[in-house]
Write a protein that binds this DNA or RNA. Structure first.
Lengths: 203, 203
DNA sequence: GTTGGGTCTTGACGGCGTCAAGATCTAATC
DNA sequence: GATTAGATCTTGACGCCGTCAAGACCCAAC
């Protein structure tokens, strides 16, 4: 063992978070169960409680990890271009890409009813993720539309991308599953949404 | 009794749907329980199964009712003005108003993981609700922007309003509860979003 | 070597969804 | 009007769930 391997199991909290994200990705929020998580981690059914208190605690930890992924990915995307529009588009693509790569994490990030919204880490990383988007909007406004209400526009983009994930991602999966008409990749849809929103539906 | 009062209880399915919506509104999807619904309806814990099969069946029935409310309200709103922009704005306001008036119904409408997405009524009323929005977009395009991709724009608006409900509605409730800064009414926010989207962030 | 505290297990409890079996009631038939 | 058939609802049971209390275990410091 290297330096700071904890007591018995070797960073059980990390294993539990990963197992929880796996269960969430496979069975959705409705199919989530603490006991199933414990089973996959190879520990007893009451082990998670010691680290996370209860189910809400574990789900909150997963949600925080999700916000962390979102923050890091969108931050890198925002810095990927000097053109503010390209930068904003990249942020949108990065956002949905994280949701595709970590479906279990993002599935709980906005589930206020099953997460502890008063958790400091949850609020902190949630705010950071939002701040990245706000920064991208701010640069767009500075260069192209100084009169833009940045708070309103950021909230709009945030809603748009979250609605995209909730409404169209499962819808696309469903029509795909049924062999329906081919559906464009979700990141492309996010880009199309972003460009249409910046341009305006009827400017 | 009038004409066709059913057998024992007097339209138990209707009572169960109402009780389910009540529980959903009070405790959220996570706090939902078939037995609690049965308790409120004054019947035994297994009674709902006879009419709705299982929990998914009852939740699907509530979701269908939600889509019905959405369809009716937005249809009336769309017809409330001859100006296509005002009409679209009214549709947006009507949508979130339904969500405020029937929180239990709308809470399950898009929960693909706990609802039977193959249910014909569910698909039918979901499509009808979407068609109303699409019609409003179509009129806007005809009058002001013939080049608009109507399917894309409709999907964007749909995502926007749904994201608004999921992200900002509980967020507003939370900051309100904590005595934070006053938050604009959600229908006003929906209107601001709509106008900003039509106009464009940086046209 | 002993002691202490963090880590995990075991066992129990009530609540849940679901199923099978039976009771109860309505409506149609004779 | 009595009987029968079928829909409606109840009762009881099962396994799974989250949570709690108590105890076993194990590492680390003394």
């Amino acid at each position: 063992m290297t330096s700071a391997t904890p007591y018995h199991h070797g960073d059980l909290p990390r294993v539990l978070r990963a197992a929880a994200a796996e269960v969430l990705a496979e069975r959705g929020v409705a199919g989530f169960s603490l006991r199933e998580v414990a089973r996959r981690a190879g520990v007893s059914h009451a082990a998670p409680a010691h680290h996370f208190g209860d189910a809400t605690g574990l789900l909150t930890a997963v949600a925080v990890e999700g916000f962390r992924y979102l923050t890091e990915a969108t931050r890198a995307a925002a810095a990927s271009s000097d053109d503010p529009l390209d930068s904003l588009v990249a942020v949108g693509r990065a956002y949905v890409s994280v949701a595709l790569d970590h479906p279990g994490h993002v599935a709980v990030a906005f589930r206020w009813d099953i997460v502890d919204v008063d958790d400091p880490d949850y609020q902190d990383w949630g705010n950071q993720a939002f701040a990245v988007l706000e920064g991208a909007i701010e640069r767009l406004a500075a260069e192209r539309n100084p009169d833009l209400d940045i708070g309103l526009a950021s909230a709009l983009c945030w809603s748009m991308v979250e609605g995209l994930l909730i409404v169209h991602l499962p819808l696309a999966a469903m029509t795909e599953r049924k062999g329906g008409a081919a559906v464009p990749p979700i990141p492309d849809l996010a880009e199309a949404f972003t460009r249409l929103m910046v341009h305006g539906l009827a400017p």
